[in-house]
Simulated assay, not measured.
Amino acid sequence: MKNLKRRWQLGKVRPGDGSALPEYRLWQLFSRSMLFLDLVTPSGETRVYAVDVRHMVEAKSRQQHENAVGKSPAALYRDGVQIHRSNLPTAFPVPGGVIEVATSAFGMKRVHFVAEDGTERALRPHDRSQEGLRARFGRRFPRTSAAVGVVTLLVLLTALVISLMHGAEAVTRVPAIAELVGRFVSPVDLPAWGNVVLTVAGALSAVERATRLRFNRLLDTVSS
């Protein structure tokens, strides 16, 4: 399945237009992510690859956007020159492996270099991007950063448990199922304002995890 998925993602990649990598601007903080990878060639030269992701390109209009202006939601640059572009999720081919790129509703889901031997590592974010600012905060205040990570994880776990209990309650309302397993009543019944607070907290927690390139299919989708 991994090989099939990789082939499908590689098949979406198109040649780049040779344009220069645009400079990252402060106002693009929430609409753009830029991450870098340094690779050493067999001859000993260091090549700098950059993945440029534009978050504001809607999924339904990505193909039209690409055909109209020659841009894609994601592009790969080598030493500042665009060599590949693609819709997301994708896998850009690079010497010695691929760069897997995927996004979620809250930001980056995955930007990792996967080597031919299966090892992988996350790319280095641009200093002024969301991911770069979060990484800098983590380096300067490691304990506070770890505490924030624990809080966001607990918020998402709480939201997941409550969602599962409400789902079980809804399912067991069906008469046929209630006769088989009984009726389940969720012990947690939040007021309207409580549901709003939990939803907002879950979304903020998912965004915070996205800035650290942390994604769990179960946890980080429940808040969406």
Rank of each mutant, 00 (worst) to 15 (best):
E131N: 05
F215M: 08
Q9S: 07
V174M: 14
V171N: 00
A91I: 06
T172I: 01
V196H: 09
V53C: 05
M165N: 04
F36M: 04
S205A: 15
G149K: 10
F137W: 03
Q63V: 15
D117H: 06
P125M: 08
G18I: 05
L160G: 00
L190N: 05
V69L: 10
R54Y: 09
G182R: 06
R143A: 14
A206S: 09
K109L: 10
E131D: 11
N216S: 13
A91P: 04
N216K: 00
D127S: 11
R6H: 01
N67C: 13
K109G: 03
T144Y: 02
D189I: 11
R47E: 14
G80W: 04
A68P: 04
V197D: 02
A176W: 11
V188L: 13
L160Y: 09
G167Q: 03
Y77W: 03
M165R: 01
L26T: 14
Q63I: 15
G167I: 00
E179S: 15
L88G: 07
T119Q: 12
E58Y: 14
T41H: 08
N87A: 13
R7N: 10
V98Y: 05
T158I: 11
L10V: 06
P15Q: 00
L88E: 06
Q130I: 11
G80F: 10
F36H: 04
R140S: 12
T172E: 01
R212D: 06
D117M: 04
T103P: 00
L154M: 13
A203M: 15
V207W: 12
H65W: 15
Y49K: 00
K60F: 15
D220L: 10
G118K: 06
Q64N: 14
G138E: 09
V155F: 01
A159E: 15
T199V: 09
A115Q: 11
T221F: 11
A192F: 15
T103E: 10
R140E: 10
E45G: 02
G107M: 02
L29V: 07
L4E: 14
H65T: 11
K71W: 08
L153A: 09
P95Y: 08
E100L: 13
K109I: 10
V200E: 11
G70E: 02
S43V: 12
G96K: 03
I99A: 09
L213N: 08
L218F: 14
V155L: 12
T144C: 13
V200W: 12
T41D: 12
T46E: 03
K71A: 13
G16H: 05
R47A: 00
V207G: 06
G70I: 03
A206V: 01
L39A: 02
S186M: 09
G149M: 05
V101K: 02
S31P: 00
V111L: 12
